[in-house]
C-alpha cells in the first residue's frame, strides 16, 4: 500500500462539509455584528458611515465623515469591538482546548486557576499603584504562576492524570482567590479597593489601543498554535494510550496545548479583567451547532466566542445609562443558558 501524499483537500465527510458551511456563516455573522456594534452608542452611527470610516482608514484616504465620527469609530469603538472579539475568541478557544485536552466537559480557563492567578496579579499591581502595563504584566505572570503551580502539584501527585490536574487547578484557584481577598482587605477603601473590585468584575470600558497592541500578539499566537494542532488534539480524545499508539507525542502535545491556552487566557484577562462563563459556555454552544469533532469545534468556538462577547458587551454599554460590568452579565446570561445546554447534552456525557 502506498503512503498518502496528504497534500490534497481535507476529507469531505458530509457532516464536515456542513460544518465548514456553518463556520463560514458564523464568520460572516460575527463580522456583521462587529460593524453594527461600532454604530451603537450615545452617538449612533449608520453602518454605511462606519464602513466609510474603516475603508478610508484602510486605504489612507480621507473619509466623507466629520472628524468627530472618524474619532469615535477609530479611537473609541474599534479598539473596544476588537477587544471584545479578542477576549471572547481567546476564552472560548481556550475552553474548547481544555475540554478536549482533559476529556472533561466542565473544564474551562478557570480550571487551572489561570483566571484567579491573573486576577491576583492584576490586583497586586493595582495595590502597588502600578500603571496599565504593570497591571497587564502582573496579570500575565499571575496566570502563568497559577498554571505552573497546578501542573507542579499534579506532576508530583498524579503522574499526568487529568483528574488530579483539574483538582490541583481548583486548589490553586481557591488559594489565589483567598490571596486576592487579602489584597482587597488591605486596599485603600477610597480609591484602590473600588478599582480592584471593578476590574475583577470584568469590563472592556477602559480598553485602549495600547492595551490591545500589547495583548493581541499573545492571544493570536495562542490561537494559531491551537488551530495548527487541531488534528492531533482531536486524536487525543481517544485517550492517552490510544493517541500514543496512533503516533501522537502525547506529553509534548499536552504541554503545548496547555501553554497556548493559558497564554490566551492570561492575555484576555489582562485586558478585560475576569470574564467568567465564556470559556465554559461557548464551546458547548458550538458543539450543539457543529458537532463534537474538535477540528471543526475549535474554529467554530473562536468565531462564536467573538460574536457572543461582542453582543454581551453591546448589552453592557447600551442597556442602561450607566455601563454594566461585563463579567456580571456573562454570568447572569451564562448560568441559565448552561443549565439548558446541560439538559440537552446530558445524554452524551453520561
Amino acid at each position: 500500500m502506498t503512503a498518502s501524499a496528504s497534500t490534497d483537500l481535507p476529507a469531505a465527510v458530509p457532516a464536515a462539509r456542513r460544518a465548514r458551511a456553518v463556520i463560514a456563516l458564523l464568520g460572516a455573522t460575527t463580522l456583521v455584528i462587529a460593524i453594527l456594534s461600532m454604530g451603537l452608542g450615545h452617538y449612533p452611527l449608520t453602518s454605511a458611515a462606519v464602513l466609510d470610516v474603516l475603508w478610508s482608514a484602510l486605504t489612507g484616504t480621507p473619509s466623507g465623515q466629520p472628524p468627530m465620527v472618524d474619532n469615535v469609530v477609530l479611537a473609541v469603538r474599534l479598539p473596544r469591538v476588537l477587544a471584545a472579539m479578542l477576549v471572547g475568541a481567546s476564552l472560548a478557544a481556550a475552553g474548547a482546548a481544555y475540554q478536549t485536552l482533559f476529556r472533561n466537559p466542565l473544564a474551562s480557563p478557570a480550571i487551572l486557576g489561570v483566571s484567579s492567578g491573573a486576577g491576583f496579579g492584576a490586583a497586586l499591581a493595582m495595590l502597588l499603584s502600578g500603571g496599565a502595563l504593570a497591571i497587564q504584566g502582573a496579570a500575565f505572570a499571575g496566570g502563568m504562576l497559577a498554571v505552573g503551580a497546578a501542573m507542579f502539584i499534579a506532576g508530583r501527585l498524579g503522574k499526568g492524570s487529568a483528574l488530579v490536574l483539574v483538582l490541583a487547578g481548583l486548589v490553586v484557584s481557591a488559594l489565589f482567590q483567598a490571596l486576592t481577598s487579602a489584597l482587597k482587605y488591605v486596599a485603600d477603601p477610597l480609591d484602590t479597593l473600588p478599582a480592584i473590585v471593578f476590574w475583577l468584575l470584568g469590563s472592556l470600558g477602559r480598553v485602549g489601543t495600547r492595551d490591545l497592541v500589547w495583548a493581541a500578539p499573545f492571544a493570536l499566537a495562542g490561537m494559531l498554535a491551537l488551530f495548527l494542532l487541531r488534528w492531533p488534539t482531536q486524536v487525543l480524545e481517544a485517550g492517552d494510550d490510544e493517541a500514543r499508539t496512533l503516533g501522537v507525542p502525547v506529553r509534548a502535545l499536552r504541554i503545548a496545548l496547555i501553554a497556548a491556552a493559558t497564554l490566551m487566557t492570561a492575555a484576555a484577562v489582562s485586558i478585560s479583567g475576569i470574564v467568567g462563563w465564556v470559556g465554559l459556555l461557548v464551546p458547548h454552544l458550538a458543539r450543539l451547532i457543529v458537532g463534537p469533532a474538535y477540528a471543526t469545534l475549535l474554529p467554530a468556538s473562536l468565531l462564536l466566542g467573538a460574536g457572543y462577547l461582542l453582543l454581551v458587551d453591546d448589552l453592557c454599554r447600551s442597556a442602561f445609562a450607566a455601563e454594566l460590568p461585563l463579567g456580571i452579565v456573562t454570568a447572569v446570561l451564562g448560568a441559565p443558558v448552561f443549565v439548558v445546554i446541560l439538559a440537552r447534552a446530558r445524554r452524551q456525557w453520561s
Binding site: 498518502s4 496528504s6 481535507p10 476529507a11 469531505a12 487541531r230 488534528w231 492531533p232
Partner: peptide
C-alpha cells in the same frame, strides 16, 4: 504534522 487528513486518507 499540522495537517488534516485529505481525500486520499478518506
Amino acid at each position: 504534522p499540522l495537517r488534516l487528513p485529505g481525500r486520499s486518507d478518506e
